[in-house]
Nucleic acid binder design. Structure first.
Lengths: 215, 215
DNA sequence: TTATGATTGTGATAAATTTCACAAGTCTAT
DNA sequence: ATAGACTTGTGAAATTTATCACAATCATAA
């Protein structure tokens, strides 16, 4: 009845968004079936890994034919929670926060940017796209009004914990944290860490080795 | 002589940027020694994992005392290739590219944004911070002039492969790819994939389970 | 010097993840 | 109906990663 309660390995979960993307592409092209080999090729992974991943939640593949694109898409969307919409607030409208507010990829995946908050008086009332920036003190009120469920935290590192406490107090249970610090939160709050620097440093490391540029 | 040739597990490498951050903080506070327990606490991992990670490249800890912050910092910087500077180009000055161009975290980690490219005639000549946007056709020339080593790819998905081919042709060997597609490149080019959507979908999944909001 | 307390380094073990290999199922063409 | 070509699903093996537990080491103070 409720497949989502099956335990899906973390490593697999991390790949589901990639699968979602490829399936979306195929669905757009009106392709009805896809083999694990074909999909794996597009993803740069092995077909057995893909099949194993899908097996954790019942990919319902058809031997000799492949997987039903629409069905698999629906299944993965359900697991990732993309099949319903989420109301998200952005807290901290600096460069990063502003870019995030305008990023179309969010809406496409069921994340609705519904409110913007900052603490800088100079920014209050400014518009980013359709939305006006509110003062952080309005968070609790707006949370109830708009049903905010996720807060993207794009404030400077020094302010992050303090602002987190306010977010938690407002009753928001999901924090997408772009500040480079670990946040202290109650158990019922989920924090997802996002850090651009990790990616570029990994690249930097690989290049150092490749180019032999080190001292 | 060259510790970087020791094989460091991928999982460990992925954590080094986090260690770098904590060590930077400690160093800033003029703290000379730190124990694995203390550092692990700040990171939300176990101390034994930290020690094991450091053991792969010789953390040079002192029993009873802990690790020398400055020494460890230098070591990790060397491994991550942060101890020298890199010249980076940003290709595609949309919302994301522009935010990246202004992101101070890059400079802080030895990544120098040295040139901006776009293909949209309307944008050519515009300034973002100190730099002017150049036409993509100047890439090869600028690569030689500025010694560009990394290209951040922030163009729409449809254009990504085409632009990648130009980047490769210009002789740039590191691509930090923000476009949600897999890139075909020669073996000597390193591609680091960056995808914001993965993070927020993971959060979405965890929230779905937690809140029991699914259908 | 010696006792005490703190902390590392690392084998051994456990857990998680990936890869392999192939039986079993499905489709198509004849 | 049958053969042949494909493709899935999945146990088992291999590999990678994380945790445990404790001897060895170092600093400090009496």
């Amino acid at each position: 009845m409720c497949d989502d309660l099956v335990i899906i390995p973390k490593a697999t979960l991390g790949r589901l968004p990639l699968y979602l993307r490829v399936l979306n592409g195929l669905h757009h092209l009106n392709i009805q079936f896809v083999s694990s080999e074909e999909m794996a090729m597009k993803l740069g992974i092995t077909s057995s890994q893909l099949r194993k991943d899908l097996s954790y939640f019942g990919g319902q593949g058809i031997r000799g034919t492949g997987y039903d694109v629409a069905y698999l898409l629906g299944k993965i969307k359900a697991i990732l929670g993309v099949s319903q919409n989420w109301q998200m607030a952005i807290v901290g409208l600096g460069k990063l926060g502003t870019a995030l507010a305008r990023y179309p990829g969010l809406q496409q995946h069921g994340i609705n940017v519904a409110a913007l908050f900052d603490i800088d008086e100079a920014k209050i009332g400014w518009k980013v796209g359709e939305l006006s920036i509110c003062h952080l003190s309005e968070l609790t009120e707006k949370k109830k009004e708009l049903g905010l469920e996720i807060a993207a935290l794009t404030v400077p590192a020094q302010a992050a914990q303090e602002v987190t406490d306010l977010i938690v107090e407002a009753g928001i249970q999901g924090i997408w944290n772009f500040a480079p610090v670990r946040l202290e939160t109650p158990e019922n709050v989920i924090v997802q860490y996002e850090d651009l620097v990790v990616g570029v440093l990994t690249l930097s490391h690989l290049l150092s080795r490749r180019l032999g540029k080190m001292r």
